[in-house]
């Protein structure tokens, strides 16, 4: 329980730093939002009035605190280019992106965890080089390239979905998820290769540990050693890695949304950057970063369930 609390505090601290860095960066460069909103022709008096109205005359830390409080109460500011509250702009897109990341995450876990352990045998065998080479190859495949191939092959030719025509998540959830599935596959391919590579070296190093000798000396067969002992021990680093993979999934998602024409946070982010719409960029960046931090913590929690040594909360 105590270590849980510590984790949550760590999480909050990380989120605080992340949000502060983002806020500070944008404060530095965005110049005066009042000027940005009113345009260059506005009179100084009007700009001054708007500054007061927006609370921009307050000191930096006060503004940051206000912004952070606003963030957690759902007030993310107003988009420069859409003249809409950022929260309203983001809400429908957030679900789309999170679903896509989640599906991709599930694909990666479901494929790489069992395959990583099962492929151990052949990976140390005569065709080990083939595994390594294939891994390196798939790690080199950029999601946007697979995206082009898949949206053409599975979309245009096979008609599993209509590229560019994303179904509404609420009206047609099944269609939307099917659409997202193909995008998620593109993100997953290089990540699966990466996970497999990492899993394999983990299993190999676990196989050299003393407890494996013990397990063999007790009459375990290969399966018993691998499934009964090595699998569980390899799971901890694998899950840590899976948690970190969320960052890469989000990164891949930003690009893949563009390829598939998915109305998610990634496209909003890119459009906002092109338009220099800082409040929107700020909010999206912080949300995505929080999501990544959150995934890392979820991985930690799962690992604590698997590995009793982690439950001490690092006291030893």
């Amino acid at each position: 329980m105590k270590s849980m609390l510590r984790r949550v505090l760590m999480l909050l601290a990380t989120m605080l730093i992340v949000s502060f860095l983002t806020y500070a960066a944008f404060e530095l460069i965005s110049g005066d939002p009042a000027e940005a909103m009113l345009g260059t022709q506005a009179t100084p008096a009007r700009v001054e009035a708007l500054r007061k109205e927006l609370g921009l005359d307050a000191p930096f830390l006060v503004r940051y605190a206000r912004w952070l409080l606003g963030f957690f109460s759902g007030n993310l500011g107003v988009s420069y280019s859409y003249k809409l509250p950022v929260a309203e702009l983001i809400a429908p897109k957030l679900a789309v992106t999170l679903w896509m990341c989640l599906i991709s995450f599930i694909i990666i876990s479901v494929i790489s965890l069992p395959l990583g352990v099962l492929s151990y045998q052949s990976a140390v065998g005569r065709f080990g080089w083939l595994h390594t080479t294939l891994n390196q190859f798939f790690m080199a495949v950029p999601p946007f390239f697979t995206g082009i191939l898949i949206s053409w092959g599975c979309g245009v030719i096979l008609r599993f979905f209509t590229p560019g025509d994303f179904p509404d998540l609420h009206a047609d959830p099944a269609g939307a998820l099917r659409y997202l599935f193909f995008a998620a596959v593109c993100i997953a391919i290089p990540r699966v290769a990466m996970m497999l590579r990492m899993m394999r070296s983990t299993v190999i190093s676990e196989m050299e540990k003393d407890y494996v000798q013990t397990a063999i000396s007790r009459g375990n067969d290969r399966q018993g050693v691998l499934v009964g002992h090595v699998l569980k021990n390899s799971l901890v680093p694998a899950i840590t890695m899976l948690g970190q993979t969320m960052a890469e999934i989000v990164a891949g998602g930003i690009v893949v949304e563009q390829v598939f024409g998915i109305p998610g946070l990634g496209r909003l982010l890119v459009a906002s950057i092109a338009n220099r719409d800082y409040p929107t960029v700020q909010a999206v960046v912080v949300i995505l970063a929080f999501w990544v931090v959150f995934a890392g913590m979820a991985a930690d929690l799962v690992n604590q369930c698997i590995d009793p040594r982690l439950r001490l909360g690092g006291e030893s």
């Binding site: 407890y211 013990t214 000396s217 009459g219 375990n220 067969d221 569980k232 698997i306 590995d307 009793p308």
Partner: peptide, 27 residues
């Protein structure tokens, strides 16, 4: 190997030098 497994553990018990490492830490 199959025959060996029927002997390992059952007829021959082994105790290793480093008990800390010889135990599976997660079980």
């Amino acid at each position: 190997r199959d025959f060996l497994r029927t002997v390992q553990g059952k007829k021959i018990g082994v105790v290793f030098q480093q008990p800390m490492n010889a135990m599976d830490p997660l079980i």
